[in-house]
Design a protein around this nucleic acid. Structure first.
Lengths: 206, 206
DNA sequence: TTTATAATTGACTAGAATGGTCAATTACAT
DNA sequence: ATGTAATTGACCATTCTAGTCAATTATAAA
């Protein structure tokens, strides 16, 4: 089915994937238009259905591609020896940005998968959910946290802050085709992380 | 145009508004279906277009209704004398929940307006943006904050935490028709606020 | 009861968009 | 020169679209 798709030039492949990611995350499965995808990706209608049997297969492919790409990029590049949660989180942010540079809509699509009510999609996300919880727990030194704060809640706040920062930046750059200055973004994220460090760590760890 | 709509029974009016809010926030303007709206709202196709000239007018009406409803509920019920930011925020959360009980999709629709690229919609939101910034600044006693934390960032983190908590709960209840226990929700939000208070306030204000 | 007005219906358009097909063409190796 | 794989886009049946309108029902007034 997608043997043909797997061996085309990487640039073209990514272009198609990105257009499909965009269309699906904008309009969900039903209202997403294959016509739109091929137009945006600059390929013919026939070619898309030469690569994928039908719309559903395309979506299926994207789902796996999305999950696997994120999973592998993070699993292969994260340093699990680091025990400081903020350093851990910085790494993840860095890796996410790297993924986003190549696949700008991958996390939007991931959110779509995640928010979906369909049972089998949720199942697909189990690996991703496991990774997500591992990021915020595996080998982390929680003794650095103030004892008065509820750990779980503090961690949620950390996670939410990063997610919301990501969403708001992504919105800020929507429509504007000026190249995004990821270094500046990363720097600002770091300063947010510093605020969170002061907020949640005991004095001796600042 | 909407004189007819304004004077129908309130229950029916709210039903139509809510179905339209839902459809538009799910599929955006173009892909939202008036057929779907009338089916969900249990009214005839003709009636919807008797109330509103066309789809665009309906959307227009909803935009204003959305902004005005939120604006008024908050403006009329907030106590601007309270100077503690967390007490301020608690009030807002309470009011938002009250609005949500009546119009479950109003904030989803609001987000749609907010994220829109269309210039005139952004303009409509100016009042809402002004209110939003007033909530987190007017008459607030910022001296309670630790001096080491950057105020603006701390405030964003507070805002984001509440927004994300709202979104995640809203997702959690999606599909489930069991009645939502808003009191339990409010209590949990309070506990998050306590975490934030510890995080950002000087010791003497805890 | 009659009459006038307003509210409501749903079958009905004309046109657009949909996912998907396929014979024909091009590109590319051998 | 030949065979295979990649690519096109016109085409199709079907579904869906926003919007209309003559007919019906409900409401209120006289």
């Amino acid at each position: 089915m997608n043997e043909a798709f797997e061996k085309i030039e990487i640039e073209k492949r990514d272009r198609i994937i990105n257009c499909a990611f965009k269309e699906f995350s904008k309009y969900k499965f039903d209202k997403a238009s294959t016509n739109n995808i091929v137009k945006e990706a600059n390929i013919s209608k026939g070619l898309l259905f030469y690569y994928f049997n039908n719309k559903e297969d395309l979506f299926e492919y994207l789902s796996e591609f999305c999950v696997n790409t994120i999973l592998e990029e993070i699993k292969n590049n994260i340093d699990w020896n680091i025990t400081d949660i903020f350093e851990r989180v910085k790494q993840v942010v860095f890796l996410k940005i790297r993924i986003t540079e190549r696949y700008p809509y991958i996390f939007h699509f991931g959110k779509l998968l995640f928010d979906s009510e369909s049972k089998d999609l949720i199942f697909k996300n189990r690996d991703l959910m496991e990774l997500s919880s591992k990021i915020y727990s595996y080998n982390i030194d929680f003794t650095k946290f103030k004892e008065e704060v509820e750990l779980k809640k503090a961690i949620n706040i950390i996670r939410w802050t990063l997610e919301k920062y990501g969403e708001e930046s992504s919105n800020r750059f929507k429509g504007i085709d000026k190249e995004i200055d990821y270094d500046a973004l990363l720097e600002e994220i770091n300063s947010y992380i510093e605020v969170l460090r002061i907020a949640f760590y005991k004095g001796e760890y600042l």
